Simulated assay, not measured.
Amino acid sequence: MTGIETTLLRQALLLIGVAVVMLSGPAIGGGVLIWRKQKARASRRSPLTTKLLRGPGQTLRDHIEESRVDLMADLAMMMTMPLMLVGLHLAQSYLLGAPESTFRIGFTTVAAIGMTLWSARRLYKRSRSLDFARLGLDAEIAVGQELDQLMREGAAVFHDFPAEGFNIDHVVISPSGIYAIETKGYSKPNRSRGAENAKVGFDGHALHFPNWTTTKPLEQAERQAAWLKKWLSNAVGTSVSVTPVLALPGWFVERAGRGSVWVFSGKEIRKLLSQRSAPAVDAQLVRQAAHQVEQRCRNVSPTYRPLDQGG
């Protein structure tokens, strides 16, 4: 073996050694958690044998959970990778006798700073996305809790209905009508205008917030209602009508016109069934439609599962 090959081998072994030392803690910790979970599942099993209905904001809950894991991974990388680079540099200097040089010091410094900045950028973007997801989840929970009150009036209420490539936040099926409800969680400007910051105007065509105007939520609600109408009509074997609804929890809605989409605040949504302009639905169709929607929404596995059902 030549001198160059020996040096390369020593460099490779050194790199592996530094990596093992730096990552041994997280690896052992993760192994202990996995072992404990497997041991618990081997001795006990969940009493639940069927899948659960989706709750308000189920998609956002899953996204938040995954984002938290990714956030912790990014944070761990931000803390360990620069240390690995510095540790490798010092190990080369003191274990392999590599001479210090401006190039080596500069390369290690630039690489460590670059890795830190790259990780910081990922952390910022992921934490910002997580904030938006939490705001959306709060909004969906608030509207879902109001809609659940409609079950006292004989309505079937479902949340986070999985469609094709998207989800409908809430579906309400009742003799008064069938509704596809889109919920939007918009933050308010933090200014000293009091109640003015909490008002949104609706002229039948657009939403006018204190500092911006949009039509996208209305268009989204219409698209989702059209999809649900087509799917549900095919599922029950007869044409049904679906009313698009937009819920804006935390906002006071000032109506200056009427459009194809009904717009409510979070508290007003409980008045949904009292709006008589929606086509009535006979009792048999209510049962059929509710059955079809429930089958699609009952797809959540219990979080505590026996080993033979997978992770």
Rank of each mutant, 00 (worst) to 15 (best):
T2I: 00
T2G: 15
T6W: 11
L9A: 14
L13F: 15
A19S: 13
V20W: 03
V21A: 14
M22D: 09
V32I: 13
L33K: 08
R36S: 12
K37W: 04
R41H: 00
A42Y: 06
R44Y: 13
R44N: 12
L52H: 04
D62F: 06
D62K: 10
H63M: 12
E66D: 15
R68C: 02
D70S: 13
M72F: 09
M77D: 06
M77L: 08
M79T: 10
L85C: 06
L88N: 12
H89P: 05
H89A: 15
L90A: 13
A98I: 11
A98G: 00
S101V: 03
T102V: 10
T102G: 11
R104A: 07
I105F: 14
I105N: 09
G106A: 11
G106K: 06
T108K: 01
A111D: 06
A112Y: 03
A112S: 13
A120C: 12
K125F: 12
R126C: 02
S127F: 01
R128V: 15
R128C: 06
D131N: 09
L135F: 15
L135Y: 15
A139F: 08
L150D: 07
E153A: 00
G154W: 02
V157M: 08
F158T: 04
H159T: 04
F161K: 01
P162S: 06
E164V: 09
G165W: 04
G165M: 01
D169Q: 05
V171W: 07
S174V: 10
S176G: 12
S176V: 11
G177Y: 05
T183F: 01
G185M: 01
Y186G: 03
Y186D: 08
A195T: 13
A198G: 12
A198F: 13
A198H: 06
K199R: 15
G201L: 15
F202N: 02
G204V: 00
A206N: 01
A206T: 08
F209Q: 03
W212G: 11
Q220G: 00
R223W: 10
A225L: 01
W227P: 04
K229T: 13
K230V: 03
T238C: 11
S239F: 09
S239T: 12
V240W: 02
S241Q: 14
L246S: 02
L248P: 03
G250W: 05
G250N: 07
E254L: 14
E254N: 14
G257K: 09
G257E: 08
R258F: 04
R270I: 01
K271W: 05
L272N: 05
S274P: 01
V281D: 04
D282Y: 14
A283F: 11
V286L: 10
V286C: 12
Q288Y: 07
A289Y: 05
Q295I: 14
R296S: 03
R298T: 15
R298H: 11
N299I: 14
P302H: 01
Y304T: 11
R305A: 14
